[in-house]
Simulated scan of single mutants.
Amino acid sequence: MAAEGEDGADRTEDPTAHRLEEALRRGDVAKSQEVSLFLSLGALTLALMLIPTFGAAKTLALDLRAFLMNAHLVPDSGSAMLGAGQRGLVAGLKMLAIPIGLVMVAALAGGLVQHRPVWSFEPLTPKFERLSPLSGLKRIFGQQAIVQFVKGLAKIGIVGVLAAVLLWRERDRFEGLVGQGPADLLGFTLTLALKLLGGVLALHAVVTIGDVVYSRLSWMKRQRMTREEVKRESKEQDGNPEIKAKLRQMRMARVRKRMMAAVPQATVVVMNPTHFAVALKYEPGMAAPLCVAKGVDAMALRIRAVAEEHRVPVIENPPLARALHATVEIDGEIPVEHYRAVAEVIGFVLRLKRRAS
């Protein structure tokens, strides 16, 4: 993790998958508040459209109508007024339960659609560097703060212009509302609010898309790494290259030692005179000959020397030696396509042994 004071200009490397995963674990995610706001406005618009169909809204309207029509019958005692107020409050809460629930679900969905759920207490952990006046000034006058300020002014301007245009178009209807009843006034107000919210949603969709892209790019830029961080993380993830090279050398040494110990038990060594050597072992009952050792250049010459020292036949067959070296692994059976050529070599060796004995 980069130090807080590192210059962003030094962070020239794209973040690794491990770096991004660590950021998510810390609760540092690419998140746009505009998504939650857009979905909340959409849920509010939907709730306003559905309010006339809610049973609770119809019940509240009937209760209010009955209360207003019979207001002169309600006792003027404090307990009676308190009871009427409580009944009205309960009825209002019932009507608002579904709209409020829709808005809350939309606000939560705004985070879930941008990233998977993250459980981290690190953002709540006090950090003393945040108390620094210099850090505070950077947050207030930094690029992020300026962008948020400009975005807020733009949204206020957009809503103001939309409201002005909408009210101007409806100016002729305002004079006729003076003599209309409460139901007509409520319907007109609801229609006007839905038009305003529809226009705000349409323009806010553009703002939301732009803010999502900006938030993602800013987050990726914030996660960029220096070359030293990439190297350090590579060492931590994959191990020290020097240690890995040393272990690889040790494994190769063990393999070479085991190969040279197996050469004396080989049946034949097939060679390209100085470049390739493959030691094969075959005994009755085997499905196919096995490769017990192979090598190139200096290793090939060592295999040949050990074979000659232990009287293992060495057959020079350059094409077969190259093909076997490329296709067969140590302790592996030879491929089917080389059965015939290897069988001829081993047959020749066995005939020589019988003739010699």
Rank of each mutant, 00 (worst) to 15 (best):
L177E: 01
L324H: 01
K138D: 14
G199Q: 02
K257D: 15
A321D: 10
G42R: 00
M259Y: 07
K94A: 13
A298P: 00
F67Q: 00
N240G: 03
D63R: 06
E337P: 04
S36P: 03
L124H: 05
S357V: 04
A300E: 10
I51M: 14
G210Y: 03
R254L: 15
A293I: 10
I330A: 15
M250R: 12
L280W: 05
F174P: 00
V255C: 12
L162W: 02
Y339H: 11
I100F: 13
R169T: 07
L134T: 04
R130A: 15
L197C: 12
V90A: 08
N317R: 08
A321H: 03
G176D: 09
K281Q: 15
I346H: 01
Y214M: 12
A261F: 09
P126D: 12
I98T: 02
Q33V: 13
V306W: 15
A84C: 01
V312K: 03
S77K: 00
D297S: 12
H18Q: 11
S36M: 07
P123I: 04
M220L: 15
D211F: 06
R11G: 08
L60F: 09
M250H: 08
V29N: 07
A288H: 10
H325N: 15
R340T: 09
M220H: 12
L186V: 03
L60Y: 04
V213I: 15
A287K: 10
S32V: 08
G42I: 02
H115C: 09
S357N: 06
R258G: 15
I98H: 01
P273K: 06
E229H: 01
M260S: 13
I346K: 00
A30Q: 03
D76C: 08
M225Q: 02
G160T: 01
P133F: 13
P126Y: 11
F141A: 09
